[in-house]
């Protein structure tokens, strides 16, 4: 009887624990183990300041995907890899812009779909807008173009 109860405890522990491990991985960490229900495209920005892996990708304010990777290429452009669900079909005219949530909030990628040929996985979006540099904007506005850092 004593051993039986140990087995029951261990069994429940392992079941509950596996649920926790998988929940953390799949729900919280958005891991995919079985194939891929998403594809990736890249976008070339002159500045991807504030965009990190995990940043949101939105269309019309609705979250559709995440940023997977941000790297610098040989032309010193930022190449941002976007992960999008297979159900989302985009065209090659899509514009990607780095936007800011609120005045100083998180950066995210906004996609504005256009028309034209459907986009293949791995396509590189070249039609991009980098983020507004609020600091330089403010300093230009407040100091009338004098190139000094606003304190």
């Amino acid at each position: 009887m004593k051993n039986r109860s140990i087995e029951f405890l261990v069994g429940s522990f392992v079941l509950l624990g596996l649920a926790a491990v998988l929940y953390l991985a799949i729900q919280v960490g958005s891991a995919r183990f079985f194939g891929s229900d998403s594809y990736t495209v890249t976008a070339r920005f002159s500045s991807a300041s504030g965009v990190n892996p995990g940043s949101r990708v939105e269309i019309a304010g609705v979250r559709v995907g995440t940023v997977k990777d941000v790297v610098l290429d040989e032309f010193f452009d930022a190449i941002v890899t976007l992960e999008l669900p297979n159900s989302l079909e985009l065209d090659e005219d899509t514009i990607a812009s780095v936007k800011t949530a609120g005045l100083i909030g998180d950066r995210f990628i906004d996609l504005s779909p256009g028309g034209g040929f459907p986009m293949e996985p791995g396509y590189e979006i070249v039609d991009t807008e980098s983020a507004l540099d609020i600091e330089s904007l403010i300093s230009r506005f407040a100091l009338g173009g004098i190139d000094e850092k606003a304190e």
Binding site: V21, A25, V28, G29, S30, A31, G54, R56, T66
Partner: peptide
Amino acid sequence: RVFESVTWADVQGGY
């Protein structure tokens, strides 16, 4: 924020 910011790489690193 919890669901958005955590990536699989973070969870994997923890494991």
